[in-house]
């Protein structure tokens, strides 16, 4: 495949551009034809490939699981129902271990993050050129099939979790409690004057800690998958006979990475929301 590009660098760059739909500088709407054009479109553009793969895989996941859930019964489970039950039981145990409050949304949220991210990560194992090549045949020149290598996707999810963290913090602790948590820790003092003096320092530290959560949450997933994808692209630049010697071990190792990253995202979601519910501070 690399032969159709002028240089390896161009090949890599081409594989890192999303199929972007947005407004051209002249005011008309359409797909960006180059990375520079996509950049120019600014915020009011959308990555059609990321969204399509994300929503497609999400729909596949909820469709299959809802089908199994609809047929769920207390008798002996069949093949796919058993599989779904295993996953749900696993998620349920994980949530029970790390979430100490009562909230009906947490377990489904964890399930959804885990399976959805896992499926999106799984697309990383599809050889890097297959799907883009198929789309190039129908005239679509950019196609990134691994939605989690798009920071918009991972940050979109982590910021959703962050919004929930803020909501439950305010709901469980109240405005005063939440502000107190942000300003009266980690440094405390008995003397009221010192206490007031410590407020800016505490607030700075706590604000950094709070904001670091969604950013690290989203970027961790993005970084791992982006790096993995990049290695696959680099391996694809090798001569054809040498590719499998590297891509097979990396793919095997990557099976671990994609599962682990999906799991980490889920666990952090649960842990962050548990912290948001904690009132004893």
């Amino acid at each position: 495949m690399a032969a159709t590009y002028e240089t390896g660098g161009e090949y890599i760059k081409h594989h890192l551009v999303n199929l972007t739909y947005g407004q051209y500088p002249d005011g008309s709407w359409g797909f960006a034809q180059s990375a520079a054009e996509a950049k120019q479109m600014g915020f009011w553009a959308i990555h059609v490939d990321s969204m399509a793969w994300a929503i497609g895989l999400g729909a596949l996941f909820v469709g299959l699981f809802a089908r199994a859930a609809k047929r769920a019964h207390a008798g002996v489970p069949g093949g796919f129902q058993n599989f779904v039950e295993q996953i749900i039981e696993f998620i349920d145990n994980t949530v029970r271990d790390s979430f100490t409050h009562k909230n009906r949304i947490i377990a489904p949220l964890a399930l959804c993050s885990f399976i959805w991210i896992f499926l999106m990560n799984l697309m990383d194992l599809v050889p890097v050129d297959w799907v883009p090549y198929l789309f190039s045949l129908i005239g679509v020149h950019y196609m990134k099939i691994v939605a989690t290598t798009d920071p918009n996707v991972t940050m979109g999810m982590s910021l959703s979790v962050f919004a929930m963290m803020l909501y439950y913090s305010l709901k469980c602790k109240g405005v005063g409690g939440f502000l107190g948590e942000l300003t009266l820790h980690p440094f405390t003092a008995k003397n009221i004057v010192v206490k007031v003096l410590l407020i800016p320092i505490n607030f700075f530290l706590e604000a950094v800690a709070l904001l670091a959560k969604p950013i690290s949450h989203g970027l961790r997933l993005f970084g791992n998958l982006y790096a993995g994808e990049m290695i696959f692209i680099l391996i694809a630049l090798l001569p054809l006979w040498a590719q499998w010697t590297l891509s097979v071990p990396w793919a095997i190792f990557h099976v671990l990475v994609i599962t682990l990253q999906a799991f980490i995202f889920m666990v952090l979601t649960v842990v962050y929301l548990n912290m948001a519910h904690d009132t004893a501070h």
Binding site: A38, W116, G156
Partner: peptide, 25 residues
């Protein structure tokens, strides 16, 4: 580039979570 996709993803996430909470879990 950071663009509308981030909002689109957040909306999809919310919908899928709601669906899981309602019909799967």
């Amino acid at each position: 580039n950071i663009n509308l996709t981030i909002i689109g993803q957040a909306i999809s996430f919310a919908i899928f979570v709601w669906f899981c909470m309602r019909f799967v879990w």
